[in-house]
Simulated scan of single mutants.
Amino acid sequence: MKNKQFLLVVIPLIIFVLTGCEDIISLKVTDSEPQLVIDGLITDQQGPYTVRLSTTAPYFANRATPPVEKARVILTDERGSTEMLTEKQPGLYKTAEFQGRIGGNYTLSVQVAGETYTARTAINRVPDIDSIGTVFRPETDDRDAGYFLTFYGPELPGNSDQYRIKVFRNDTLLNNPELDLFFFTDDFIDGQYLNGLELSAGPFQKGDRARVEIHSITSETYRFLVELQRQLRNDGLFASPAENVSTNITNTNTNGKPATGWFGGSAVRSKTIQIR
């Protein structure tokens, strides 16, 4: 997320423009101390699973976030299975044999620079996808003509379930936060059949290959995505001040350096179609 210092600069600049003041104001932006960022996901599909470690960078730094190398990254479950991940690329750690499963509970431990960070998640149940359809939509002022995907499948009755849907075009994840970050809870559709739920990702064209994945997510991940989406869409003149998005990464030393990021767990079902 953008540094709060940047927001403190933007607000006075907006006031400066609106009031027409002609004084020249020099503003010095101080950089916040870099934080460790942990990004990981475990699923019920065949691994390897990946954990990415990096550090935050100053807002105006025109470079990728620096990777964190030579960390000790360990994944365990409630049954006692454990594995130390291998650093395949700078800051990119992968499992070799660890296997996630529905109903499993998982703990991630990251030891780096004298600090130990932990995060916990679970893999919840997920429904099957019966089929994926398409519907053609003509061109509009803000959208090209093309085919949009429709989802058909059951929602599992009982419990409280949350899901995220990911859409891929020709094996590339569609990742526009305004259109493609699609997640929901079953609070009002528990046990119902999703009969032609139209997905906003697209449009697709004839010849494209589309893959749709439905991921189960925990209630904690659902709340994290709600906060993330709120921040991503928080723009305009009267936007509210930015806030730090929640994290499930905890330093075992309460007086140690904090970290940010998210470690999630998902069961995944998918369906692929060719647009004809």
Rank of each mutant, 00 (worst) to 15 (best):
T218G: 01
T218Y: 03
I189H: 15
Q231K: 04
R223E: 13
R230A: 14
R230H: 11
L225M: 12
N253G: 08
I217F: 05
T254G: 12
H215S: 07
N244C: 02
S216T: 01
S219Y: 09
L194F: 09
G207T: 01
A239S: 13
A210W: 02
N255S: 14
F224E: 06
I189Q: 13
A239M: 10
D208F: 02
T252H: 12
D187I: 15
Q205Y: 11
Q231T: 05
S200A: 15
E243N: 08
N244V: 05
L237F: 10
N195Y: 07
E220L: 06
T252S: 15
N195G: 07
E198F: 06
R230D: 14
N234V: 00
S200K: 15
T247I: 03
T221R: 11
V212F: 00
S246L: 00
E213W: 02
A242D: 12
S219F: 06
G207P: 01
E227K: 05
Q229P: 02
N234W: 00
N251D: 06
T218S: 14
Q205F: 12
N244I: 01
S200I: 13
D235E: 09
S200T: 13
D208M: 07
R223A: 10
D187F: 13
L228H: 11
L228V: 04
L225I: 05
T221S: 11
G191K: 03
V212P: 01
Q192H: 15
D190H: 05
T221Y: 10
L237E: 10
A239V: 08
L197A: 12
L237W: 08
E243W: 06
L194H: 04
E213I: 05
A210Y: 00
V212C: 04
G191Q: 00
I214K: 03
A239P: 04
D235S: 10
D190A: 06
S200Q: 14
R211F: 09
Q205A: 14
T252M: 13
F224N: 09
T247M: 08
Q192P: 07
E243P: 03
R233L: 15
S216R: 03
N251L: 03
D190Y: 06
P241K: 03
A242Y: 10
L232E: 08
F204T: 00
T247H: 07
A201S: 15
Q231C: 01
G196R: 08
K206L: 11
D208N: 09
G196D: 07
N244Q: 13
Q231P: 02
P241Y: 06
D187L: 14
T221W: 07
N255P: 00
N255W: 04
S246Y: 00
T254Q: 13
N244F: 06
D208Y: 02
D187T: 14
I189C: 13
T250D: 13
V245S: 01
G196S: 07
Q192G: 12
